[in-house]
Lab assay of single mutants.
Amino acid sequence: KYSDMIVAAIQAEKNRAGSSRQSIQKYIKSHYKVGENADSQIKLSIKRLVTTGVLKQTKGVGASGSFRLA
């Protein structure tokens, strides 16, 4: 599940300011076997996790910027 992968990526990075979408994508692609549409799936999952309150956006708008666990 992409949401689990995103949470794992943010936990692994341990950046106080949060993790960027690009760094999350890079982590997921190197640690998991994902399909061609992974980028758009990650983007959608990040937006969903922010609206449900699992992630907090520290910089930027939408799916860009930095995110950390709430």
Rank of each mutant, 00 (worst) to 15 (best):
K1Y: 10
K1V: 09
S3E: 15
S3N: 10
S3L: 09
D4G: 05
D4E: 12
V7G: 02
V7K: 05
A8Y: 04
A9K: 00
I10A: 02
I10W: 01
I10V: 14
Q11W: 09
E13L: 15
E13F: 08
E13Y: 07
K14E: 09
N15V: 05
R16L: 12
A17I: 09
G18Y: 04
G18L: 04
S19R: 06
S20A: 05
S20D: 06
S20R: 03
R21N: 08
R21I: 15
R21Q: 13
R21H: 13
R21Y: 15
Q22F: 08
K26W: 15
Y27F: 07
Y27W: 10
I28C: 03
I28V: 14
I28E: 15
I28P: 01
I28A: 00
K29Q: 06
K29V: 07
S30L: 09
S30I: 08
S30W: 05
H31K: 04
H31V: 06
Y32P: 01
Y32S: 02
K33H: 09
K33C: 09
K33S: 11
V34W: 02
V34H: 02
G35D: 10
E36Q: 12
E36R: 14
N37C: 07
A38P: 04
D39E: 10
D39R: 05
S40T: 12
S40G: 06
Q41H: 09
Q41F: 09
I42V: 04
I42C: 03
K43Y: 14
K43N: 15
K43F: 14
K43I: 14
K43V: 13
L44D: 11
L44G: 07
S45M: 14
S45T: 15
I46Y: 01
I46D: 01
K47P: 04
K47C: 14
R48G: 06
R48I: 14
R48A: 11
L49V: 01
V50A: 03
V50G: 02
V50F: 02
T51N: 12
T51G: 08
T51V: 13
G53K: 05
G53F: 04
G53R: 04
V54Y: 06
V54A: 04
V54R: 04
L55M: 02
L55P: 00
K56M: 13
Q57H: 11
Q57R: 09
Q57P: 08
T58F: 07
T58E: 11
G60Y: 06
G60T: 08
V61T: 09
A63S: 13
S64L: 12
G65V: 15
S66I: 14
S66D: 04
F67Q: 02
R68M: 14
R68C: 11
R68E: 09
L69D: 03
L69S: 02
A70H: 06
